[in-house]
């Protein structure tokens, strides 16, 4: 007996909806699980006190500071480099063998697993350049990791600016650089910022790279050459070594909230860019 196409369609659609619901269910479950376990233990003092007794007591202020500093270093390097790369690719060259090679490099770099960035950062920054386990080493390694994200997102943003704007600026006597800075970058800015914010998010959630290059000191970092732990590393150590489930949950909850805020922010920026285009 043949099942009628209408029934097949209904069945298929049911399966697809089920799959989508379960994917979302997982998302909600993960977030709910962590927040439910963590919110009870979050307090003002947890955010502002030093890490005591390897994380059994006290707060996570040094981890927050470590996270912020490392993200700053990473973005400080990756954002200018990445945006410049994307400007070159989108505005300063024709597609050809050179861009193919560059794009190949970017695509491959995007696929390199974080543990490899960790090994690389360890041998180059920590050992050979002698920065030791430090915020600098961690930030540099993270910068290498997030570079492809920033390049891709900002190139897309640059390409979404109408070609006309460039023609108008050039016809009014703008130099190539003026065309870019005055009639392209201002309109690509939300998209470029989205890339940068996604890079920040990637840096915050990363553990493997940081643990090999920045170490996991519990003290408050005093300079960029000090070892420090990020919130993700702190959480990993608490959970893995069974130091304190309560504090692990609380740290995870803070991490998840940060990531949520960052993603929502990045998405709304992207959305505004797309709306502006139509």
């Amino acid at each position: 007996m043949r099942i009628s196409p209408a029934i097949t369609q209904r069945l298929a659609k049911g399966v697809l909806i089920l799959a989508t619901i379960s994917a979302l269910g997982v998302l909600i479950f993960v977030i709910g699980f962590v927040l439910a376990g963590g919110f009870r233990h979050i307090s003002w003092s947890f955010l502002t006190e030093p890490i005591l007794d390897m994380g059994r007591g006290g707060g996570i202020l040094p981890a927050i500071a470590g996270t912020i500093l490392m993200v700053f270093v990473a973005i400080g390097i990756a954002a200018p480099l990445g945006i410049a790369s994307s400007i070159y690719l989108a505005e300063y060259t024709e597609e050809g063998r050179v861009t193919q090679t560059i794009r190949f490099g970017i695509n491959c770099l995007a696929g390199v697993p974080s543990i490899i960035f960790g090994l690389f950062g360890f041998i180059l920054f920590v050992v050979i350049l002698g920065f030791g386990w430090s915020i600098i080493s961690g930030g540099f390694s993270l910068a290498a990791m997030i570079l492809p994200t920033i390049i891709r997102t900002s190139e897309e943003a640059l390409r979404s600016v109408p070609k006309n704007y460039r023609d108008v600026a050039a016809s009014l006597g703008a130099t190539r650089w003026q065309v870019v800075t005055r009639s392209v970058l201002p309109y690509a800015l939300p998209g470029i910022l989205t890339g940068v914010i996604l890079g920040i998010g990637r840096s915050i959630e990363e553990t493997a790279v940081v643990i090999f290059t920045a170490g996991s000191a519990v003290q408050m970092p005093k300079s960029l050459f000090d070892s420090a732990r990020t919130m993700a590393v702190h959480f990993y150590i608490l959970a893995r070594e069974g130091i304190s489930n309560e504090n692990a949950y609380a740290t995870a909850a803070i991490l998840i909230c940060t990531i949520l805020i960052i993603n929502v922010f990045a998405y709304s920026l992207m959305h505004r860019l797309m709306r502006g285009k139509s």
Binding site: S85, I87, T101, G105, I116, I123, T175
Partner: peptide, 26 residues
């Protein structure tokens, strides 16, 4: 404009350079 163009090109090659460095050191 030529200098800017060169600098941007240099930046654009950074990803490939990093990839090469990673391979080299590992």
């Amino acid at each position: 404009d030529k200098i800017i163009s060169k600098l941007l090109f240099l930046a654009a090659t950074s990803s490939t350079a990093i990839l090469a460095l990673i391979a080299l050191f590992i």
